[in-house]
Nucleic acid binder design. Structure first.
Length: 909
RNA sequence: GGGAGCAUAGCUCAGCUGGUUCAGAGCAUCUGCCUUACAAGCAGAGGGUCACAGGUUCGAACCCUGUUGUUCCCACCA
């Protein structure tokens, strides 16, 4: 035994088996006669690195895949990466900047060349990291959302949806990311509450006639508490009236083209037909009336900036207000603002407050909390901005996606997310699918010199379309210009479950027919709308079938204080470091021990420690068995019954574990497996059959016992394999000689056979008395090495098959039936059975009385409540018969127990 | 502002149709043990008014109502 190390060392083992599995093609899947079991990976960003969220997510997928493989299914886990438009482009832009190259100064082609180089260099690192975790993906199937075939699919889907009238182009208020310089979909905007200041600004109020003058002339304004004076075209005007507004974005004042009040607001009744004068730009803007306004908020008057606020935009349309776009695409002030041109909006915010204070326009500043939108990818503050974008209409196309979740055709686990899903699907807005980026699929729309467009895959095709559609057609093909924008990344990943099987390129091919729909999708609830809902939508649109049957939503990995793990907080451990420290198996177990579906995982390294310790426990169980020698001795009764018991116990627990899997209770399945191995196999079974030591050597065990034990070990290795693939594979090979190519990873999952229930309950009593005796040893300070005697009161119901086991585990010199309680013995009760444990020293009679008295009291109280139930007519008439019978049995048991305790107490006197 | 979820031992969570063993598990804690598989271990023990208040029921951790706390999602109140 000395050659087997005391602790499990995973270093060489993990790489050895991973490459062996790959070499043997165990991860590979091709369609065959077997039932398929398919998972498509949520493709991580191609340039990303593995974080704890990936660990959790992919471990779960690997557990599911490995178990399916053992269940004899054709398991196929398709890996791949996502081109992640904004994130990757931002990284490439930053990389170029470091090289001194500005994106603006190079062509699209040059930029893409750099981007692809970057992708080749860093892309796929994350997939290599997944291998360290043990992920058994079919790597030959690795796909990338921007590879040719997948891009073609995206383009043809765009063309198709456009043809069907689901895609349109239009000027809309979009969420503008000034850092990424692109529009974002609503889903990519994260609203956060921030502390801001609410600035109160007064605008001079003038008549229409003065307003008219102001439009054509320059003017000078003086403002103080009592009123305003203005000089226009050499003439002086003055007045006392102002209209005051409140804003958190004072820099947008320069784009104001109206002031809006509620029609019922008495304060502003007389303002009809008047104009407010916007400070600095001295622009007169109309006072308009709309019941959109909240009279109670601020001053009850709202400045209207149609170019930079969605509500204002709508008000502007309704009341015919001018649109003045005061921002450049990078968030600096545009020439139309008239002031602070080229300065960033946040710098301007500070400046304009000062300037307006100086001019007397600002009269109050309040602290205020409001919600501000941030870019999901760049974390820049989103500016609502009008621009021309492409949209996908969601109203009709999204219907099957909702219906098939509500009718259970697609299951969401845990179910609580169905509500969220439903709410989103019922209130879904059109999807802005264009992005002002280069990294991605370029929109297949072609413009003629007049700005008219057609949608087509290539420019020759577009040219033909132009000829067909426009009579005044008079330009050459090379004058056609393709749309500059690319498509939202999600517009390619929503096709993932179809496109990875070439369902667009080659419809009806063998793969798509066999693997689609896939079985399980494992992902984070954060992308339920981004991705999951849209995949369902695309599935029904293009395959007339769901993309997957079950959606398992994991939680977010947080640190112990409940904070989200993030780079900036530095609270996220490097998964690969953890693997080095605790082994891949240890980390896998650690992650899954405490992560029920949909619940956040409060991660702590000690969880991995527990996983590592478990691996070590299994390792040492192996060491023990490996050290045994067998001979031809007759198998003892104790061995025989121990083996029978564990077989029953194993099956009982296997049934429970299978059920947990069926219900996707991953942590429970793991915990049940953990306890089966640690408690039942190691702490009980191995102790029950462990040979004695004679002259410093382990005595031989009988052949049958050793064989049975090795078989059990194989079974538990199977059960733990999905969770701990490496150590289980290693031990499976160390345990026995295996044929070439034979591996645990492809060994069938244990088959359940119904356990002997009587045996199990017999053991429960045996183990209970063993524990009670151990407890007494501890209390009375009796060494485990000092043998004791035990008697059990004669009872035909007592299952004596475990007597030898009890003797062994309790270190008894004698264990017999008796009619009478021996002298100087403690009484122990297990269920209805009475045990007597004679002790050498004098027994503390008072303490015994006390102990038994408490037990008596408890049982009397219990009996009373049972009797009360049975005496209650309404219980008798309402309760189900089996429950009634149960109560009667409880009564009888309790009465018997009370009687026996009373006798014991009496015998003490 | 709207909606949803959650609240059970120090921590993370089970508790599946209300009905023995319904108050549980793992970890942590405490007490003994370096017992020749494992101190990354063994054996044992102590922890809870099931958030609070009502209600339904023969019977409630579980069903209903309200309160409080908490988390998440959605939303165009400056």
């Amino acid at each position: 035994m000395s050659e087997i190390p005391k602790t499990y060392d995973p270093t060489l083992i993990e790489d050895k088996w991973y490459s062996y599995w790959i070499k043997s093609g165990f991860f590979k899947s091709v369609p065959d006669q077997r039932e398929p079991y398919t998972i498509v990976i949520p493709p991580p960003n191609v340039t990303g690195v593995l974080h704890m969220g990936h660990m959790l997510n992919n471990t779960i997928q690997d557990v599911l895949i490995r178990r399916a493989r053992m269940l004899g299914k054709n398991a196929c886990w398709v890996p791949g990466t996502d081109h992640a438009s904004i994130a990757t482009e931002a990284k490439v832009v930053a990389m170029l900047k470091e090289k001194g190259i500005n994106k603006k100064d190079i062509s699209r082609q040059e930029f893409l060349k750099y981007a692809w180089e970057w992708k080749e260099k860093y892309g796929g690192i994350i997939l290599e990291q997944l291998k360290k975790l043990g992920a058994s993906c079919d790597w030959d199937r690795t796909r990338f959302t921007m590879e040719d075939d997948l891009s073609d699919a995206v383009i043809s889907v765009f063309i198709d949806l456009h043809k069907k009238g689901h895609i349109y182009r239009g000027v809309r208020m979009v969420n503008w990311d000034p850092l990424g310089k692109t529009a974002l979909s609503d889903e990519e905007v994260i609203h956060k509450e921030v502390n801001s200041r609410l600035i109160y600004v007064r605008y001079p109020l003038v008549d229409a006639s003065v307003a008219e003058l102001l439009k054509a002339n320059k003017s000078q304004w003086q403002i103080n508490e009592s009123g305003w004076t203005a000089e226009v075209d050499g003439k002086k005007y003055s007045g006392k009236d102002f209209i005051s507004i409140a804003t958190v974005r004072p820099e947008t004042i320069l784009g104001d083209t109206g002031v809006c009040v509620h029609p019922d607001d008495q304060r502003y009744k007389s303002f009809k037909g008047k104009f407010a004068v916007i400070p600095m730009v001295n622009r007169p803007v109309p006072i308009v009336f709309d019941d959109y306004i909240e009279m109670e908020f601020g001053t009850g008057a709202l400045k209207v900036t149609p170019a930079h606020d969605i509500n204002d935009y709508n008000l502007g349309i309704k009341h015919g207000l001018e649109v003045i776009d005061t921002l450049n695409d990078d968030g600096t002030m545009s020439p139309s603002a008239g002031f602070y041109i080229g300065e960033d909006r946040f710098v301007v915010r500070k400046k304009i407050i000062k300037d307006l204070e100086a001019s007397g326009n600002v009269f109050k500043i309040e602290d205020y909390k409001n919600k501000v939108g941030y870019s999901e990818r760049t974390d820049a503050v989103i500016e609502p901005r009008l621009s021309m974008q492409w949209f996908l209409k969601m109203d009709t196309i999204s219907k099957p996606a909702l219906d098939n979740v509500l009718n259970g055709n697609i299951k969401i686990i845990p179910e609580k997310f169905i509500n969220t899903y439903k709410h989103w699907m019922e209130n879904v807005h059109d999807w802005c699918i264009s992005r002002q980026l280069w990294w991605g699929q370029q929109i297949p729309a072609w413009y003629d010199p007049k700005g008219r467009f057609v949608v087509a895959k290539t420019s020759p095709e577009a040219f033909v379309l132009f000829k067909m559609q426009f009579s005044d057609f008079n330009f050459s093909e090379n004058q056609l210009k393709q749309d500059e924008d690319v498509l939202d990344t999600w517009f390619s990943s929503w096709l993932w479950p179809i496109s990875v099987f070439d369902g667009f390129k080659d419809p009806g091919n063998k793969d798509i027919k066999y693997y689609y729909p896939t079985n399980d999708l494992v992902t984070a609830p954060e992308i339920l709308f981004f991705w999951v809902a849209r995949m369902v939508l695309a599935g029904y649109e293009y395959m007339q079938e769901k993309p997957f049957t079950n959606v398992y939503l994991t939680g977010i990995v947080r640190d112990k204080q409940g904070r989200k793990m993030s780079k900036s907080l530095g609270n996220s451990p490097d998964p690969l470091d953890l693997i080095t420290k605790y082994s891949a198996d240890g980390v896998r177990v650690g992650m899954l021990l405490a992560s029920p579906a949909g619940n956040d995982l409060l991660f702590d390294e000690s969880l991995c420690e527990q996983g590592r310790n478990f691996a070590n426990k299994i390792w040492n169980a192996f060491r023990l068995i490996k050290g045994w020698t067998a001979n031809d001795q007759k198998q003892s009764n104790s061995d025989k019954i121990s083996i029978e018991w564990f077989r029953a116990r194993f099956n009982e627990q296997l049934d429970i574990i299978n059920d947990h899997y069926l219900k996707y209770r991953m942590s429970d399945a793991l915990m049940a497996s953990y306890k089966l191995i640690w408690d039942d196999f190691c702490s009980w079974y191995l102790e029950m059959i462990k040979p004695e030591f004679i002259d410093g050597n382990a005595a031989p065990v009988c052949k049958e016992t050793l064989e049975a034990t090795i078989n059990f070990f194989e079974e538990i290795l199977k059960v733990i394999h999905p969770w701990m693939p490496f150590i289980s594979e290693e031990l499976w090979h160390l345990l026995k000689e295996r044929k070439a190519g034979e591996c645990l990873i492809v060994t069938p999952w244990p088959v359940y056979s119904s356990p002997d229930k009587k045996l199990l309950s017999g053991f429960e009593i045996a183990s209970e008395i063993v524990q009670q005796i151990r407890n007494i040893r501890q209390q009375k300070n009796i060494s485990p090495r000092d043998p004791l005697q035990l008697f059990v009161k004669k009872d035909s119901a007592f299952d004596s098959r475990f007597n030898d086991t009890i003797v062994r585990l309790s270190n008894l010199s004698r264990f017999e039936n008796t009619e009478e309680k021996p002298a100087n013995a403690l009484s122990l009760l297990v269920k209805q059975f009475e045990f007597y444990l004679p002790l050498t020293g004098a027994i503390d009679i008072e303490a015994e009385k006390d102990r038994l008295g408490k037990e008596l009291e408890y049982n009397k109280g219990f009996l009373k409540s049972v009797q009360a139930k049975l005496a209650n007519e309404r219980f008798v008439s309402n309760a189900k018969p089996e429950i009634f019978e149960n109560e009667k049995k409880k009564q009888a048991d309790a009465e018997a127990k009370i009687k026996s305790i009373e006798q014991q107490i009496a015998s003490l006197n």
